[in-house]
Amino acid sequence: MVIFYVLLVFMLIAAIIAVETDDLLSSVICVGAVGVGGSIMFLFLRAPDIAITQIVVEVLGLIILIRATIARDLTFISGDREFFGLVVSIVIMLVIFLAGVRVLGNLPPFGTPVFSQVPDAASRTYIAEGLQKTGAANIVAAIILDYRGYDTLGEATVLFTSIIGATVMLRSKCRKSLEDRNG
């Protein structure tokens, strides 16, 4: 159990540095530290699938973020917003904080999942019958591709749309440079 606290404190410190530093490059690198801490945490939470995916996604996301920040004439933007916007932001944060504190009181204690107390929970069915019904030893793969295939289909659609959006956003420049190079 101690390892969770150590990793969470590490992630919190990295997140605070990422938020508060003025240099964008070090801020991005601290976000990478948060992601790596999360990946190790997933490993200790008995979720190896998520750990593998998280660490690789973290590397690619870091490359994307560094692409955005490097070679700009890094203007150090400091200071906060003006008064009205700041007040509205603080109020929003306060509301979410109060709602979160209220929810935290009602959660089950750490280490006892809800589905272990409910006799006919969906997760219990997946664990008990997943291998027999789908033939996949990895229950997570059985869920995402067989029991909940629609979810994966929707995910593929969202990924496709966001990638198309990013490409369209950058397209005119791309096309111009490709044409310049070709002829």
């Binding site: 699938d49 998520i50 995916t53 995910e155 969202v158």
Partner: peptide, 17 residues
């Protein structure tokens, strides 16, 4: 619980997109 793991697995990749 395998169900949150399956949902988070898709959510991470969407996050990169």
């Amino acid at each position: 619980d395998p169900l949150p793991q399956a949902l988070v697995l898709t959510s991470i990749v969407i996050g990169l997109g």
